[in-house]
């Protein structure tokens, strides 16, 4: 039942320069990761962008393994990776490990975080965690139609200002907001939009002292690491993957991306 390339059948997209590539991705310019809580319409967004039809029912945790697909927008090819839906990225469960390791070690060019507008507060918990790892993110404020029905109004400009990343209101089921989402994915990937992500303010003094001290040491050893604070926090939680990455030197491969044209060629050859 795998619909490889159903572009002929799928509804005509109003954005002429979007080309859905299904899973026919051999080479690509950018990698986009899709993160979000379970049941926020992550798969719907994925299907909208790629033209694929991922059907595994309306169950949480339905994306058991990473699903991949692709699309082309403004002559750039994007590979999109659907991460497992999780409430958090901090626990030892397999789902959360997959998601967190991909965002950290996979170094996606853009991480799109799908957020349920009717439950903004609890969804922001995951957003803030992702923003600790990466500074290239777009928040997709999904289920806006439902929020409207429930008399919830969200000012996406304030949200964007507070989070320091683009926020796109959307109703993925109605395919609303997909154009803006594509535009921001493109802009963040190209470096036209530079994010200044919100970083957590530690409530506990001892905790913030410990994190600061450790991250200072990490930053000294890895001056190019974009997320020393996150690495420090993971070390303090005893994350073996990070310990191993330090021991093996893999952590040194995570670097801040230079926002020049040249990097794209580099990406392609990887």
């Amino acid at each position: 039942m795998s619909a490889l390339n159903e572009c002929e059948n799928c509804p005509v997209h109003n954005l002429a320069n979007l080309k859905k590539l299904g899973i026919n991705m051999s080479e690509y310019d950018f990698v986009v990761a899709l993160a979000g809580n379970p049941n926020t319409g992550k798969s719907t967004v994925f299907n909208n962008l790629t033209g694929l039809r991922q059907h595994t029912g309306n169950w949480p945790g339905k994306t058991v393994t990473r699903a991949e697909g692709g699309f082309e927008f403004n002559d750039k090819k994007f590979k999109i990776v659907d991460l497992p839906g999780t409430y958090s990225l901090l626990s030892t469960s397999t789902d959360e490990e997959v998601a967190r390791d991909f965002i950290l070690f996979g170094q996606p060019d853009v991480t799109v975080i799908i957020v349920d507008a009717t439950r903004l507060e609890r969804n922001l918990n995951l957003v803030l965690q992702v923003l600790e790892i990466t500074d290239r993110a777009v928040v997709c404020l999904n289920l806006m139609d439902e929020a409207k029905r429930n008399n919830i109004e969200i000012d996406d400009r304030i949200l964007s200002r507070e989070l320091g990343v683009p926020v796109v209101p959307a109703s993925a089921r109605q395919k609303d907001g997909m154009n803006e989402l594509l535009k921001y994915i493109h802009d963040v990937a190209n470096g036209n939009y530079i994010c200044k992500p919100h970083r957590i303010t530690a409530k506990n003094k001892e905790m913030s002292k410990a994190v600061n001290r450790l991250s200072a040491e990490i930053a000294k050893e890895y001056p190019n690491l974009p997320n020393a604070r996150w690495v420090a926090m993971r070390l303090l939680e005893g994350d073996q993957k990070i310990i191993d990455a330090i021991k093996s030197g893999d952590l040194g491969n995570i670097t801040r991306r230079e926002l020049t044209e040249g990097t794209e060629d580099y990406k392609m050859s990887v």
């Binding site: 969200i154 989070l163 409530k203």
Partner: peptide, 16 residues
């Protein structure tokens, strides 16, 4: 800390 920040931001952004 995460939830503290989350509820602060949500409080600012939710207007009605």
């Amino acid at each position: 800390s995460l939830y503290l920040d989350a509820s602060k931001i949500a409080g600012l952004a939710i207007s009605k």
